[in-house]
């Protein structure tokens, strides 16, 4: 299986492909509207020298933009999720449940929380599909 360097454009493309190819996602996410940005805080000790900003956009079961962006673009998203590299790595490896991480303050969310909770299945599905991407993590590659 092809491995993708984590938190890069090629990795995002692989993730997007997983989502776009999931019939289950299409059904679950039929009511979802809007973008989510993900900020991975820098961790030079883990080969993440700068923060990584990712912009993802979803619309009624379709996947739209999916790209590495700058801090300003990340701020434009409807929902902004932020966390340390180690936390995102745990999420991507299915070692940490994203909902629990939010409740524990390990990940931060900015945006309408009621919308997120109403659509928690969509979030969980997107993350499930992320865990299916064969990821080469910056501190492992």
């Amino acid at each position: 299986m092809t491995g993708y360097k984590g938190f890069t454009q090629e990795w995002m493309d692989a993730w997007k492909e997983k989502i776009a190819g999931s019939k289950e996602y299409k059904e679950i996410a039929k009511d979802w509207e809007g973008s989510v940005s993900i900020t991975v805080n820098a961790d030079p000790s883990k080969n993440v020298p700068e923060p990584v900003y990712m912009f993802t956009d979803y619309w009624h079961g379709d996947v739209r933009d999916f790209f590495i962006c700058d801090a300003a673009k990340a701020q434009e998203a409807k929902f902004i999720m932020t966390g340390d590299y180690a936390r995102w790595k745990q999420v991507a490896k299915k070692e940490l449940d994203a909902t629990k991480a939010l409740m524990q303050g390990k990940l931060k969310l900015r945006g309408d929380l009621t919308y997120i909770v109403r659509n928690v299945k969509t979030i969980n599905k997107v993350i499930d599909l992320l865990t299916e991407v064969n990821t080469i993590f910056p501190d492992e590659g």
């Binding site: 939010l102 303050g105 929380l113 009621t114 909770v117």
Partner: peptide, 12 residues
């Protein structure tokens, strides 16, 4: 942190 989640949910 869970306090903020509860607060935000109820307020929202």
């Amino acid at each position: 942190p869970f306090s903020f989640i509860v607060e935000e949910l109820i307020a929202g």
